[in-house]
Structure formats: C-alpha cells, structure tokens
Write a protein that binds this DNA or RNA. Structure first.
Lengths: 327, 327
DNA sequence: TTGAAAGCGCTAACAG
DNA sequence: CTGTTAGCGCTTTCAA
C-alpha cells in the first residue's frame, strides 16, 4: 500500500499534525522530534501527496504553457527555458501545443482548469478570447510571452518588435538595399515589426511600398513558396522574413534557383533560432533574448500567483541584430 | 468563490452523488435528472476539480516525460508527438528536461512522484538507475522511448538502431565509399548503430577499423570540432554521424574549409530532424518514424496504466534511409 | 432512481 | 511543543 502521513505519524509516535509540520517546515518543535520524524520519513520512503495538499488550498505547483507549435525551434527553445525557470521555482509545466487549432485551445484550457493550474503562460496568439478572459476572471494569473497585444488585461513579456523591424530595415539599408520585400505574419507582433520597418525606411527618405509586403504563416515551405512568387513578381535585392523558418525557406528557394546569397539576394530573418546557424551561409537575423524573456515571464507569473493585487506589467526586451552570411 | 459539486447539487435539487454520476456518466438515472443537472453545470460554469477526484483513487491523468534536451530538434519533435497522443487520450504531460544532469533527474523524479503521475515516459538514458527501479517497484508504469536498453525491466519503443547503422553503411558503400569515419555517441543505441554499421562493412568484405570511430555527444559544435580533427587525422571520403546535429556540424566545418559536398566528402546523419532539410545541400539521413513511435509509446503506457499484469513489451520500428544532397 | 455517509491524504486552526 | 479535529471536493458503496 501507499505510505501516507498516518503511517509516518504512527511509526514515529507522533500525530499527523506534527508530521505535516516537519514536511512543510512550519511551526516550532523540539529538534529531536523533527529528527525522529525525518528519520521515519526516510525509512518509509514517504512521499507526500501533492494532490491532497492542493485540495487544502495550497496550489498545485503547476503552470500551463500554451504554445503554437513546438516544432518551430523558436517555440521549442521558449518551452525549454520556461520549463527550466519554472522548475527552479519548484513548479512544473504542462505543455499544450495549440497548433493554430482553436478547438484544441479550448480543450486545453478546460483541462488546465480542471487540473487547477496555479497560472498560465500564453506564448501564442489566442483564438478564443472569451476563454482567456474567463480564466482571468476566475482569478487565474496569466502572462503573455512574445506576443505583444495589449488587448488583454494581462502582464506581457515581449521583445521590442518595433525596434526589431527598425533594425532589420536599417541594416539592409546600410548594405545598400533599396528594394526590399517583406514576408510577414498575421499577428500583432508582426504588425509592429512591419511598422518599425516602415519607419526606418521613411526616416531615410524612402517610400514604404505596400506591394512589397506579403503575409503568410511560419513554415519553411511557405517561405520557399513565397520566395518563388516574390522573385517572379518583383525581383527584390533583399528579403526580410519575419521569422527564421520563413527565411530558411527563402534561402532554399533561392539556392535552388542558383541565386547567389548574399550577392544577388540578401536575406534577414527574425528569432535567431538554431536554424539560423545551420545554414550555409549563416542567416543574418534579429535575435530575441528568449532565455531572459522566459525567465522574466516565469518570475512575473509566480509573483502574480502569490500576490493579491495583480498589477499588470509589461516588459519589452531589446532585440539584437546578429549578422551572419546572408547579408 | 469556487463552484463545487455541492453548489451544483443544491441548485439542481439533487444530491452530490447524483451530480457525480452525471459528470462521470456512471450509473443509471432518469434522463430528466441528467438533463437538469447538466443544465445547472452549464449555468454555473462548474468545472470539476481533478485533484479531488485524484484523491479518491482515480488517477491524475498526467504523465511525466523525461527528455534530455528539448533544444535538440529530434527531442522537441518527440515531445511534441508524445504530447499530442497523450492529449488525445485525455492525459496531460509534464515536461522534464534532464540535460545530462543527474541531479536534475533526481529532483524531477521526486517531483513527479509527489505529483502522483499515472505513468512515465523516459526518452533518454537514465543516470540514477535505482530511482527508476524504485519508481517501477512502486507500481508506476514506465516506458522507454528511442533508447533501446533492455537492462531495465520496462517496455521499450525504439527504432531498429542496428538496421539503421546497417543501412547507412550500405548506402555509403554503394556510393563507392571505402574510407568512412563514424561519429558516434556514448549511448546504447549508438552501440547498436555502430554494430549494424560494422556488420554491413564486414558483410562486404571490408574491415571494420576502430580508429575511424569517434564518440562525442550531440551538438553542432561537437560535430564541427570532430570533423576538423577527423579531417586532419584521416581524410575519409565519407562521414556517418549518429545524429543530425553532429552531421550539421560536419557540414559546417567542411563548408568552411571549402570542401565540396558530396564530391569530396559525403555525409549521412541520423534522425531526419527538421535540420536535415534546412541545409544546402539537404542532409541524407536515417529517419526514425518518430510520430508513430511516440504514438505507440503513449498507447503502451496507457495500457499499462489500466492493466494489472504489466507485461513488458518491446517494439522496434524500421528506420528509413532518406537520400538528399550530401551523399 | 436517488441519496447518506465514509473515506482519499493533507493542512490549519485551536486546545491542551 | 504537540495533538484533535474540521474541512478541501470528489467517488463510491450501500440503503432506501
């Protein structure tokens, strides 16, 4: 049978309350008693049941992580750092891949609620806004990561997308490019990047041309496809892809056509995932300090779990231009 | 306040037992009663507390996933598919990145035990064997994935590593290579691959040369470093890397030295991760059917959770040679 | 067909 | 300093 607090208490000749106190290091007690109980715990290999303690009002020490698609290296890195930081704080994380699937999102949210998670990190856009709002209303702390949309009344940790767009454009400009195509995404962060890009261009007296802007979702395949179309349409001298996956697709497409990179076509990505360093030449990209962002996210979430007030905060991290071979 | 089963019962004018029955779809009852209770549940937005039901003996519907390093795309893909299959069965998964860190492993195991996980998937080698054995002794089902080591008395799902090694060697041989260096890892699976490789060579009347075999751990950096050394040492015409990460490192190293791939140097990897398709030229590699493997793993685990007998099973999946540009 | 009541393992007053 | 006891929210006999 499973060893419970009663077994320990009996064997140690104390009450369960005492055992509980030594487990949780609460209250005072004779050092000898504590030692004795600890000895029995070790002897019996007693492992406290967190479910039971969760029932009595302590949290579940579990947080949920909603993520679009962990096969995108940016998100797998994110997941990784979130998990690390959470674990350091004694929290475990339940992974939830949403996959652009609103149904799945719904099912997951419900599951997480049943599981009584202490908090939730949303590292993706959110389809069923009302579900999120509902969760928040019920008092479950939520922090959004890498998705800067202030529509929701939650704390946000993100990279400064505007700045990222601005820096990418500036870099391309400084390299002499004047005809730059953009492959963006359908997210709010993407809009911010685009805006930064535009401001950078206009600040240099260039005109922002809507026709040079394309939108798709993050995948190598899409990158390749869009490249082909773009190259047919407008033959730009540079392409700014809003994430590395798309940029990789562009590289593949260009290489297959025998286009020389960066001489005939310069490419810049976003995220600085592992992929950016695997291509030859290496991909110039805008790095998000994802490790720090993840840490901050967990930190804020845990704060909100413990606090009452729940002040909403917003942290913007600086992106960093990483120059490699594609520009 | 939080809505409990009591609130629902009161409002519906029934007992909590009845509510419990409609939640779990157990027992018989008048259709009208069920309808009424369901209506109240909806109205009150009642969400059953899984912790409480876990306490009464039903499981936690949660499994743990021990994984070495999710930033290795092979493992992030693995995690992804595990999570998917688990979720389909109504289980959630707690991610545990071990990072070759025996301390972390220990802490995680303990945490998972406290959390009363229903089962555990181990997708990595295991440092603290006694911990695993202890877990098994306590009756927690464990399945090992992609790590074929029958030392443990658990079910195993893996690729046929021997066959993978054999096929890679055969492919290289058929391309005319006779001087092939191997970059292996320090795992049991790696030994099996090496053995397959050896048998393939010897079957063709070649000799297996220990000196052409190197061992390291999976990372791009290591791949690159080992390539440099290998090239200095022995100038092989081909390199068989035991995973894609290492293979990518080799490609990088070779490209930097201006070595033409595959003419001057052929390269073959293992895993068929996303990385294999991002390089130019694409990486020839041995694919593991990771999605099916993950599904099978979850399937077996859930079986073992429900069964009493706990028959240990062993599933070997066929690897597949994926030919791209590096050979 | 429905309900009363005894747990599940733990925490946290409150007493002693 | 230590123990008694009343829950936490749910499941599950067993009666009615």
């Amino acid at each position: 049978m499973k060893i419970t607090i009663y077994d320990v208490a009996k064997k140690a000749g104390v009450s369960i309350a005492t055992v509980s106190k030594v487990i949780n290091n609460t209250g005072n007690m004779r050092e000898e008693t504590r030692r004795k109980v600890n000895a029995v715990i070790k002897e019996l290999e007693y492992v406290p049941n967190l479910m039971a303690s969760a029932l009595t009002g302590k949290g579940t020490q579990t947080i949920g992580l909603l993520i679009p698609d962990i096969s995108n290296p940016f998100f797998s890195a994110t997941a990784r750092y979130i998990e690390d930081s959470a674990h350091e704080q004694g929290m475990s994380v339940i992974m939830c891949s949403i996959d652009d699937n609103s149904e799945k999102e719904k099912k997951y949210i419900e599951l997480l609620e049943r599981k009584q998670i202490d908090g939730l990190i949303v590292a993706s856009l959110f389809y069923n806004e009302h579900l999120l709002k509902n969760l928040i209303k019920k008092g479950i702390p939520v922090v959004m990561l890498a998705y800067d949309d202030s529509t929701f009344d939650v704390s946000i940790v993100s990279v400064d997308d505007f700045k990222g767009g601005y820096e990418a454009a500036s870099h391309l400009f400084s390299k002499g490019h004047r005809k730059i195509a953009v492959i963006a995404e359908h997210t709010h962060s993407s809009d911010l990047r685009l805006y930064g890009y535009r401001v950078a261009l206009e600040g240099r007296g260039m005109e922002f041309d809507e026709k040079l802007t394309y939108k798709t979702s993050a995948s190598i395949e899409n990158g390749k496809q869009y490249f082909e179309q773009i190259y047919k349409d407008i033959k730009p001298t540079a392409i700014f892809a809003f994430n590395d996956l798309i940029a990789i697709g562009v590289i593949k497409g260009a290489t297959e056509k025998g286009i020389r990179i960066p001489d005939e076509l310069a490419i810049i990505g976003f995220d600085n995932t592992i992929l950016a360093s695997t291509t030859v030449p290496g991909l110039t990209t805008i790095a998000q300090p994802i490790e720090e962002m993840a840490q901050k996210t967990v930190e804020i979430l845990i704060e909100e779990i413990h606090e009452q007030k729940r002040m909403k905060k917003r942290f913007l991290f600086d992106p960093e231009l990483i120059i490699r071979g594609t520009t």
